[in-house]
């Protein structure tokens, strides 16, 4: 199979890559661009561990083709902190122990950030439904929901 050149923007940086037509955005990020923050937990869009933003829309990178990133804006976990300064969600997740093994954490953070951008003051139920596509097997979700709410409150008062 011939590879296809793709021009895109990832976390604000213009990026070019070659990929095969059947290659997922997740494989491109992980294997070609060395951005391994997004994880493959299932490859079928069921676990959310590969959540990224594509033109402002929350997607599973395993269900998007690399070529679909052409001309698009991609945001990943690697772009969430501003240098040394963590995003409030990232900081609160550490402070409130909202992670254990951490493999679902990048996807959950990307998804939670997308929620708070749309709805800065969600109810617990809204957080739970928004994150229903992000599986976590360690925490039972309790501390994740609470950490999202703490970060949301902090972001509202900022």
């Amino acid at each position: 199979m011939k590879t296809i050149p793709v021009e895109t923007t990832i976390n604000g940086d213009s990026t070019e890559f070659l990929c095969q037509p059947d290659e997922s955005l997740l494989d491109v990020l992980r294997d070609r661009l060395g951005m391994t923050g997004a994880k493959e937990g299932c490859g079928t869009g069921d676990c959310g561990a590969c959540s990224v933003m594509l033109d402002g829309r929350l997607v599973c990178a395993c269900l998007v083709l690399g070529v679909e990133a052409q001309g698009a804006e991609v945001e990943t976990i690697e772009g969430m902190a501003n240098g040394e300064e963590l995003h409030p969600l990232q900081r609160v997740f550490v402070e409130e122990a909202a992670l254990q093994c951490g493999v679902c954490t990048p996807g959950i953070l990307v998804a939670a950030k997308a929620l708070l951008e749309k709805n800065p003051d969600p109810t617990d139920t809204e957080v739970r439904y928004w994150l229903a596509g992000n599986l976590c097997r360690c925490t039972g979700y309790d501390k994740i929901i609470k950490a999202v709410q703490t970060a949301a409150a902090e972001m509202r008062s900022a």
């Binding site: 937990g41 299932c42 079928t44 069921d46 676990c47 617990d124 139920t125 957080v127 739970r128 439904y129 994150l131 229903a132 596509g133 992000n134 599986l135 976590c136 097997r137 039972g140 979700y141 309790d142 994740i144 929901i145």
Partner: peptide, 16 residues
């Protein structure tokens, strides 16, 4: 697969 082998998701649960 995780679609048919269904593990609990956040919206299934209350606080623990």
């Amino acid at each position: 697969g995780f679609l048919d082998y269904r593990v609990p998701v956040a919206s299934d649960l209350p606080d623990i």
